[in-house]
């Protein structure tokens, strides 16, 4: 059984069909990159997996459990599924340490004495152990995004979702964030990413999913998809991002 099973998912915003019958499986340990033009439904799909949006029709299962905004253990579920946003969304009124330890403490995952060691541990994994006592606003965009990743890691998630996490960054800061994500991929984390970084998609992803008009239009390993696209839509998309 796949870790994530998406079956014929539909989603409308007002009258616009954003997702139009999406089906997709993601295996444990797999790195799946979703690409496509803006408005193709990539981010919405990601948000549905985490129950930030409810689907109108179809089903999403994660670890065999049906995902739904009213699922009884939504909070426990969200602790197992980490999501990193384009805009970092760090809590600017909390220092880096507290940003990371707030949720583990409040949800009872860890005790008070374990908090700082945990923060140090996950910060070390993103290379920012020295920023543990900084305010988020004192960090660069790339550093803030790495703290956001560390904040997710502190929940020891089984699955990580990345929603265009480098799109808001200055070009010279993109690399440091991608490096952290590559390292996570090597350690076997299951990851679903929406990204415009084609180089990253090509080098790190196990599978590329091209979305178009709210559907999975074409998918396959990067070596195939980037070299021999089957549909004209994907071919023109690849040409446009080169």
């Amino acid at each position: 059984m796949a870790l994530v099973e998406i079956r014929d998912v539909h989603k409308k915003f007002g009258r616009t069909d954003v997702l139009n019958g999406v089906s997709l499986d993601v295996e444990e340990g797999e790195i799946v990159t979703i690409i496509g033009r803006s408005g193709s439904g990539k981010s919405t799909l990601l948000r549905c997996i985490n129950a930030l949006e409810t689907v109108d029709a179809g089903e999403i299962h994660v670890e065999g459990q049906r995902v739904h905004a009213r699922m009884p253990d939504l909070r426990q579920f969200r602790q197992r599924v980490g999501i990193v946003f384009q805009a970092f969304n760090l809590f600017s009124h909390l220092k880096v340490e507290r940003n990371i330890t707030l949720a583990p403490l409040l949800t009872g995952r860890i005790g008070k004495s374990e908090a700082r060691p945990l923060a140090l541990d996950v910060l070390a994994r993103v290379g920012l152990a020295d920023k543990i006592d900084a305010w988020p606003e004192q960090l660069s965009g790339g550093q803030q995004q790495r703290v956001a990743i560390a904040r997710c890691l502190a929940m020891a998630p089984h699955l990580m979702l990345f929603d265009e996490v480098t799109s808001a960054l200055d070009p010279e800061l993109v690399g440091e964030v991608l490096k952290v994500m590559e390292a996570m991929a090597r350690q076997g984390m299951t990851m679903i990413l929406v990204t415009h970084e084609m180089g990253f998609a090509r080098n790190v992803a196990d599978r590329i999913v091209f979305m178009h008009q709210g559907r999975v239009w074409e998918q396959g390993p990067p070596s195939k998809l980037f070299v021999r696209p089957e549909t004209p839509e994907l071919a023109s998309f690849i040409a446009s991002v080169k």
Partner: peptide
């Protein structure tokens, strides 16, 4: 987005409001 970030970390409605 701040509220969403809190929800995504598995915090309850009250915890999100308060913290």
């Amino acid at each position: 987005s701040q509220i969403e970030a809190g929800q995504c970390l598995g915090l309850s409605g009250w915890q999100v409001f308060f913290h």
